[in-house]
Each structure stands twice: as structure tokens, then as C-alpha cells.
Nucleic acid binder design. Structure first.
Lengths: 262, 262
DNA sequence: CGTTAGCTTGAATGCTTTCAATTATTGTGG
DNA sequence: CCACAATAATTGAAAGCATTCAAGCTAACG
């Protein structure tokens, strides 16, 4: 049982229920970031049957090999996908933000190929896959929005491959922080500086294909450059432009267009 | 102009026109590997308007920043996706095989986030995106098949992240070769050993986040272990089990299920 | 038959890891 | 409220895997 002290990164809660759409309104908001949805589409999503559930840090939400029949939607908190190598080495292969659906994939691919775990305390809406599948069949607009979501995650994955494969440790770390900065600003109303990154050094290492020790040294370097701050045991972005310069960051791969601009 | 000597890896040609479905029959076969398609769905795909075009090794098929209105389908040969870092470093982020559609993404995301280039001489069927989009709207079965294709590519991308992020050079290389072996056997009728890999050492390096020099040394090591052969300037897989053992390869991430087994 | 792209090799360098030990922070229980 | 345990962060030194640099070689192509 968690005590009542919610950690940061619960912005989703600010919006829960807004627009009269209930918990799933955050999913609608997220989809509207890149896709157009008719009022009836939005109502259909809001009306999806679901159970709200709480997950604590580290909890497993989906396991490799599972055959899921529900699709969790992240209402608040952060979550990651991971794969584990035979020698025990772990690689985090995706980070998901509030409003993201975590397992559209299981609609079509029966067995999960990776784990999903809570990065921070999180709240989830568990939606039956059947219900989502029916919605995508009933509405081309919703099908489209779901697909765009999947395509953007793929695009991010490709950028990560470039990041891990071709950048040195410092640039790699800076690049990840830039992406986090941009993605978080997408859901929270943007306040450019200062954002507390909810990742331990070990998690950063598993995200970037490095070791915790080396992450520590690179963080210190970024701190000395004034790019980040590290009050007590946390990590904040202080100078986004500097991070972007170090990593040659360009956000085009995030595909954040206003959908009207089609 | 190419001379008449087709390189290896033109298996697609063996099937062109088979089943009376014309050039796109290979796309249908590929989709049938993982999805069920009604006869009318298959006919609809075969009937897609298209232009057949030839691409030579290294030709650019799609460029980052492009706004494509056609989706190339790979009829024969191999193709890869790449991203380029600001320092010129290149990362190959996907390999595509005959029968694969190369740019479903542009239906929904207007600007390309990566390049697509020919790895070998290749033939393409250029299909108007509009036509594909209409098909996916008209047939839930086709929409599903297209989506599954995208999801499997994503799954492969996640495995690549694990491979590059967490395995050493030798295992990384062995793992890639195992994947190629399996994916090629999926389209050609499987003959387990002996398969000529159409990648230069430089391309292998760009695929695995390594340098050509180190690839060379790792190849020699694999050769000495009897896992691969290197007649003249080419590369063949001799001992798949050995490669699988070196890299702890498991093919589940390829999601090759018979679609009837749903 | 020369040219060229791709492959091979050795030596030196270096980025990152590994190992090992210490310090700091958070949370818990007395 | 303080002591204690547990997790996370920090640091230094040594080792190692992979890169870089530079040169020579080989196969393929025109």
C-alpha cells in the first residue's frame, strides 16, 4: 500500500475528468495531438469499458510471453518496455508517458515479446482488447489514430537505434534528456526549463546501453557544463539548448504536427 | 542499366505471377504468413495499380524529409532503412525482404524520418498511397494485415536495440546473421545451411553500431569457429546452431505464427 | 590489365567497463 | 527522534573491448 504522498509526474491527474470524458480523456488528448477525432469518436473512446488500477514502481504490467486480453492505458506516471538478454543484461526499449496506450500490439500479435513495467507509481485504465478492436473496426478515424501512435513509437525506436549505435556516451545521454524534455512538454503545458527526470542512474544505463558507473561520470560532466542540475538524488534539465547542442538534437522524429496541418 | 546477370536474392522472381496474381503476389504471400486474407482481399491487393521499377545497389528509394505519395513494395532484392547522425555516422535501422511494403508509414505521417536505399539490385512496385489507404478502409482484413506487418517490424527494432545495447561484438554479429537466416528462410523455401549474405563489412558495421575493422576481425573469429564461410568476397552461414548458441538467439520476436493458429 | 572498392592486418590509443570500496539519501523501526 | 538498514550515488584504479590510423592486399569490373 502506498502512502498518500504522490510523487511528481502525476500531471495526468490534472486533466482527469476534464471535458467530462472521465479517466480516458487523457488518451483522447494524446491522440488529438496527432490525429483528428470526431466528437462521436471521442465519445466512443471515453465510453470504453475499463478498470482503473494502481501500479507501484517496478511492478510488472505485462510480461514477455503473456497472452494479454486487456490493453492498459497509462493515466498517470511513467512506464517502460524492456527486454532481457540471456546473460541478464537489460535493455529498456521504450518509455511511455501519460495518455499512452501500452499494448495495442496484443490485439494482433498474441504473445508479448517484451516486458512492460512501472517506472514510477502509475495509474492504469485496463481496457478489454476486444472493445478496442471493435472500435477500430467501427471507426476508421480511431483506427488511424491508433496506428499513428504505433508509427510514432516506431520512429522513436529508430532514433534510439541511431543514438545507441552511433553516439558516444555524453551525446547519447544528452539526446535522451532532450527527448524526455520534449515529450513531457507535450503532455504538460510547456515550461521549458526545470523538469525532474524520474530515472535512476541504473535505469539511464539500461536505456542507453551503458553502465551505471559511466552514467554517473557523464552526468557529472553535464552538470559541470551547466546543462543539468542534480539536487539531492534527483535530476533536472536546466539548459535544454545546451543539451540539444551536445547531442545535435532535432525533434522531427517525434512527429509532433498539428493534425489539422495535413 | 544493369546487365542481365541478376545477383542472388531474387527469389521473389520465382513467384512473380504465381497464382495468377501478378507482381504483387509476393506481397500477398508475405501477408499470408501472419494474417488471414479472404480471396476478395487477395484479389484487391493484386489489383492495386502500380508501376514496376528497377533500383540499383545504393539507389535512394525514399529520403528523410520526403513527402511521399507512393508506397514501394519490394518485389525482389534487399533494401534497408538508415538514419544519419550529424557527424556523418550512419545507422541502418531496418532490413527489408522481398514482399515487404517499404512505406506504409507515409499514409499517416507525412514526412519521412529516415532514408530507404537499395542494398542489392531490386525491383519495386510503386503503389499510390491513396489506393492502399482506400483498401485499408474498405477491408478490415487488409488493414489488419498491414498493421501486423508494422508491428513485426517494430518488434524486430526492439530486438535490435537489445542487440546493439547489450551484446558484445561477436554475439551481436552472430545474432544478426541468425535473424537474416530465419527471415530469408521465411520467403525462400528453407534450406537451413548455406545462404549468401549480401552485406559488405561496412554495411554490417552500420547495422551493428561497430566499425568495419572490428567487423572484419569478428568475421574471422566466426569463420575459425566454423560458423560461417567466406568464399572470395562473400559471406555464407554454415552453422546456424553455432551462431544461435553464440548469440543466444531465439526467434520468437519475429512472430512467425501460422495465422490459422489464432 | 589497370583501376577501384572492399577486405585485411598491426599497432597504438581511448572510451567504457569492471572491480572494489566509500559516501549519501531515503525510509523504517525502536 | 535517532539508529539502522537498504538503495542509490560516487570515486579511483586497472583492465578490456573496440576504435583509430595507416598501410598493404585482393577480387571484381570495365
Amino acid at each position: 500500500m502506498p502512502n498518500g504522498d504522490a510523487p511528481s509526474f502525476e500531471w495526468a491527474d490534472e486533466h482527469a475528468g476534464r471535458m467530462g470524458y472521465g479517466p480516458l480523456s487523457i488518451l483522447i488528448r494524446k491522440l488529438l495531438n496527432h490525429s483528428l477525432l470526431s466528437t462521436s469518436d471521442q465519445q466512443a473512446i471515453a465510453g470504453l469499458p475499463h478498470i482503473v488500477k494502481r501500479a507501484e514502481t517496478g511492478d510488472s504490467i505485462l510480461r514477455e510471453g503473456d497472452r494479454a486480453d486487456i490493453c492498459p492505458v497509462l493515466l498517470s506516471g511513467f512506464v517502460y518496455r524492456q527486454k532481457v538478454a540471456s546473460d541478464g543484461g537489460r535493455q529498456i526499449v521504450a518509455l511511455k508517458m501519460p495518455g499512452d496506450a501500452l499494448d495495442f500490439q496484443s490485439i494482433f500479435l498474441p504473445t508479448a515479446d517484451h516486458d512492460v513495467r512501472a517506472l514510477t507509481p502509475a495509474t492504469l485504465a485496463l481496457v478489454p482488447l476486444k472493445a478496442i478492436e471493435q472500435l477500430t473496426i467501427a471507426s476508421a478515424g480511431i483506427a488511424r489514430a491508433v496506428l499513428v501512435d504505433i508509427l510514432i513509437e516506431s520512429s522513436i525506436g529508430r532514433e534510439w537505434l541511431l543514438n545507441i549505435g552511433r553516439r558516444n556516451a555524453l551525446a547519447r545521454l544528452a539526446h535522451l534528456l532532450c527527448e524526455l524534455h520534449d515529450r513531457v512538454n507535450e503532455i504538460a503545458s510547456a515550461r521549458s526549463g526545470n523538469f525532474r527526470v524520474p530515472l535512476t542512474q541504473e535505469q539511464l544505463a539500461d536505456l542507453l546501453g551503458l553502465t551505471p558507473v559511466h552514467i554517473n561520470r557523464m552526468l557529472r560532466q553535464l552538470e559541470q557544463m551547466g546543462a543539468i542540475g542534480r539536487p539531492s538524488r534527483s535530476l533536472t534539465i536546466l539548459n535544454f539548448p545546451k543539451l540539444a547542442q551536445i547531442s545535435s538534437f532535432s525533434s522531427t522524429y517525434l512527429h509532433r504536427n498539428n493534425p489539422s496541418g495535413v
